[in-house]
Amino acid sequence: MVVWQEYSIGLLVVLVTAIIGFYVLSREKDDLHRLLLIDLVEIPSLGIIALLGTDLAEALVLPGLVVGIAELLALGQLYLTKEGLQDRPVRGLHIEVIDTSPAPVIISILLVIYGIILSGFTGGGIAGLGIVFLFMSRGFKENFSLIEAAAGISWAVWILAFFVFMFAPQYWYFAVMAAGIGILFKVMAKMALVGTMWGEGR
């Protein structure tokens, strides 16, 4: 009974957030701002899933998040073509402290180490954030094929680990490790790509 009450309160809070989000969305008329706000509206839906509070919820938040992000990216691209903004040059921030001091490097190394300790999807996210931060502050001129290859291989490792779970369950520890590390590298590499996506020179 206690759990049910907690759930209802949580549900109420999330629904109120969603209603606020929708209200704001209905007031906003500018297309770009609406795109930004829609992300805000999207989050309560993940909140409601997370309210389940079981490991099922964790398994459901992930695809929900991915679909939401994919839709957001698609809309973002559509906005660019719609407004004819593709050919505009994109410039980095170029704040002097970030360009010269070693702080970004240290922060990103800390994040990567913490991510590796966490391992798995969350770890990949945190380590990836560190690398995104580094690339965004320092710029990155190499081609992406190396990162892409790393992401692909680690993804394959992740899938292989699942096959181990299915066909040779006695080696589960090995499979858990492989899956954790695989997803760590995959998420990290993919997020790093995000960091370099809008680099200079375009």
């Binding site: 969305l25 309560p44 839906s45 993940l46 899933i49 309210l51």
Partner: peptide, 23 residues
């Protein structure tokens, strides 16, 4: 684009509906 905005905001009732079924 407008359709995308509508459909993206529709994921809120959609996912929460599914989650509440489980709940």
């Amino acid at each position: 684009y407008q359709y995308g905005l509508v459909s993206l905001s529709a994921t809120v009732p959609l996912f929460s509906g599914a989650a509440m079924v489980a709940a």
